[in-house]
């Protein structure tokens, strides 16, 4: 009898993290697109940092920030009596931080490639900013946004290093698939490791495969529309 809890936990963590990453990513990418202000490149570099830092460094930073005595951690503890470290919420936070760059990058590219004249035309006809965003920018940028969404989900599913530091490894509570694999390999339980490797490869592969198929279909449809 295999314990399927790592699968459910991984899907829950990656799903919730993708939800927040999508909202934040789209918000900031849209806010920053076509704007020039002092410090923009500094903020964008900060956004991208988790992509190039070793996961253990990200994990250590988060641990310091969200730990019991950390800046955010002590605040959460005092006001809400809530501890992030060693809970599955910690895994969600780690996952959000490492997958945010992927979402931001895709969304920024998508918004920047839009034809500004479309949005301006809508504005001259009296549409509110929100309406311009929702009916024009968001829909036109959707293929790019979806790519970011799927990549963020896949990245969240595979997150290991930062998660191990922030959420710890507590069997039954914070054991995601990558953790189950790591500790199974380290302790020589090759059968268990292989089982989870097959599952995570299948999940990752089908996600990316679906994305490729979907975007190709969209490009073809776009070509036909313009023919």
């Amino acid at each position: 009898m295999t314990d399927y809890s790592p699968l459910l936990l991984s899907l829950k963590v990656a799903g919730i993290s993708t939800f927040f990453v999508f909202i934040f990513g789209v918000f900031f990418a849209h806010l920053f697109s076509r704007k020039k202000f002092f410090g923009k490149s500094i903020i964008e570099s900060l956004f991208m940092l988790p992509l190039v830092l070793p996961p253990t460094v990200v994990g250590f930073g988060l641990l310091i920030l969200f730990g019991k005595n950390g800046f955010i951690g002590s605040w959460l503890l005092n006001w809400f009596d809530f501890q992030v470290v060693f809970t599955w919420i910690g895994a969600v936070i780690a996952s959000i931080v490492v997958s945010f760059p992927l979402m931001y990058q895709s969304a920024a590219a998508a918004f920047e490639s839009l034809d500004a004249r479309m949005e301006n035309a809508a504005r001259t006809m009296g549409a509110s900013n929100w309406r311009v965003f929702w009916t024009i920018s968001f829909r036109l940028a959707w293929p790019g946004l979806l790519a970011g969404l799927v990549l963020s989900f896949a990245r969240g599913l595979g997150e290991f290093g930062a998660t191990l530091m922030l959420a710890g490894y507590i069997p039954g509570k914070t054991d995601t698939i990558p953790m189950a694999i790591y500790f199974a390999v380290e302790s020589g339980q090759m059968e268990k490791a292989t089982f989870w490797v097959v599952i995570i490869v299948a999940l990752g592969f089908s996600t990316i495969m679906w994305l490729n198929w979907w975007s190709r279909r969209n490009i073809e449809r776009y070509k036909n529309d313009n023919a």
């Binding site: 019991k68 005595n69 950390g70 191990l164 710890g168 490894y169 507590i170 380290e186």
Partner: peptide, 18 residues
Amino acid sequence: LVLSSDVRQVLTHVELGN
């Protein structure tokens, strides 16, 4: 029980008070 992948991590968890 919080299981760690090496001694250093156990120390970190206690050092930071988590």
